[in-house]
Nucleic acid binder design. Sequence first.
DNA 1: CGCGAGACCTGATAGC
DNA 2: TGCTATCAGGTCTCGC
Length: 280
Amino acid sequence: MAELPEVETMRGDLEREIVGCRVERALVAQTRMLGTQDPDKLRHRVEGHMVTEVGRRGKFLLLGLTGGDTLLLHRGMTGNIFLRTPSDPPDIHLHLALTLADGRELRLCDHRGFGEIRVLDPAGVAALDARLGPEPLGPAFTADYLVGQLARRTALVKALLLNQAVVAGLGNIYADEALWAARLHPARRAHTVNQCEATALHAAVVRVVGESIPRRGTTFSDYKDLYGRPGGNAAFLQVFHRVGQPCPRCGQPIRLIRAAGRGSSICPSCQPDPALPVEA
DNA sequence: CGCGAGACCTGATAGC
DNA sequence: TGCTATCAGGTCTCGC
């Protein structure tokens, strides 16, 4: 749910809505997502500060605050962030609520609690930036870069796409969509992908992610935007969550396999299994 | 050091 | 109907 296009949609909406707003109160409703951070310290570093900017790095949302700290929010698998008014009913599975000076409330909700809430100083932001790979739509994510990464790794190509240190922001949905577009089986070993295939994969990643942002991301069940509305990209998915339906390219039924420990939707005809002998 | 399995949680759903 | 097993869009940690 919280892959790059969904987080970027959230970033843009938040930027329009809350930049320039002061946080009156920060309510930590559950501490699970704080890790080792002290909830009172977090509260004090947020309360009274104004949101100066809303950034994103990979799947992390970064709210810049006056005073130099940054509130980091990660939505894990099922986390949602809603902008509410005081008259709205309470949200279940609330973890953090920020009350803004104008009365609106930013609420982070997550029943599963796989997300993350942290306050970072500038060094913390730099450390986060350093451990993540390039943004798929940024200048550093070139075809040559991906060719190089694939060439010196033995992991499955699917695992490589999901590795945030290789490229930041891809998750299961867009990884599967990109692999299908590039006609690559997810269980191919990275170093067996040739330069031509890697170039196609690079183009597919850029296109799949880029096209999904203006559609405001992909919703199946959990993911909602800041206003509680679903994203519009699900109708454009070619393989993900389409098991049994015909491949849009060749008509063969889409299959669900397991690769790199994750469910992976593939077309068995367009994305031949590297473990099987090639048909004569 | 790179890789893959398992762990972390709760809820929805499929199957019996 | 109701129980159980399985699976879920992410990431970290731990062995090998």
